[in-house]
Design a protein around this nucleic acid. Structure first.
Lengths: 153, 153
DNA sequence: GGTAAGCCTGTACCCAGGTACCGGATGCAA
DNA sequence: TTGCATCCGGTACCTGGGTACAGGCTTACC
């Protein structure tokens, strides 16, 4: 544990990879993965080549994780951060959040239909996917039409 | 298009790969993938080694696709088909459907929370993930606690 | 200056559910 | 019998979001 030591540089106490990772609750590899993906800027380096992060990187990672939990892909998060960094605030985030709400609603609707079909299986007492002996068997779900749930799981 | 010709064999009109794939609306590669995964049985072969499927394979594929849309993984579908094939009907399908309902409910609950947070972003008028200027900014979503949505998208 | 923890790059691997490509063989109708 | 659509097995690749490993270099503390 030599991690409680702080590198000093122009502008404040800098952090090393392991410190940032621990404080943000992510893996060290993830940090470099995000750097490759353009989510976090390439940090300054020590003379020996070790990364030296400004402390606000931790907050940035928290924001990234929050956005992910809202259903944004890393690519979308990268874009949002990018437009944010370019100055002039745009209605981009708002618009994207609204679009995301529609996506979420669609997913919820699909899941609701699925839940319905599952409940039918249970209440009808289906005992086989292919040779069900229950009366009025709901299988194989005519209402779950081909292609209605493109990639839904 | 020589696919409208039917191979005849013991028990009925047999189908070739392309015919099954087309009728079931899946890719030819997928068919062989399912065979490798044990979802469909290895079909008979022509003297030259071409697969020759019984016509009910198309229905089986429909069932597989329906089960997938219900949220079962291919592995789960394979197991369900397997216990079905082994004769003696078990309450397996019913139990699994009930468990799946719980999974679906959990997903819906997560999505509902997410929808809530998104709606807050919209109504508060957030304009940046990192430097939002809106009053009482809900970012970065303290209620979406770390780890609450392990793999949710 | 020794020692160990931590960091570096690069590459490969994981999950699921497929899809694509290759060179060669087969099936079938004209 | 010729021509070409289709099929064969094997292998590699795709998406998304990371994770792991190998082999070597730095940093920090004593």
């Amino acid at each position: 544990m030599r991690q409680d030591v702080v590198l000093r540089g122009p502008g404040g106490p800098y952090l090393r990879t392991g410190q940032v990772a621990e404080q943000a609750g992510v893996n060290v590899q993830t940090l470099r993965y995000y750097e490759r993906r353009g989510l976090i800027a390439e940090p300054a380096r020590s003379p020996g080549g070790h990364r030296s992060y400004p402390p606000e990187t931790v907050a940035l990672l928290t924001v990234i994780k929050a956005a992910q939990r809202l259903g944004f892909t890393l690519e979308e998060v990268a874009e949002l951060l990018d437009t944010g960094r370019r100055g002039h605030p745009t209605p981009d985030l708002r618009a994207r959040a609204q679009a995301k709400i529609l996506e979420v609603d669609a997913k919820i609707a699909d899941l609701t239909t699925i839940r319905h079909a599952l409940a039918q299986v249970v209440s009808a007492g289906c005992d086989s996917l292919t040779h069900c002996t229950c009366p009025d068997c709901p299988l194989p779900f005519a209402d779950l039409a081909e292609g209605r749930f493109p990639k839904e799981s």
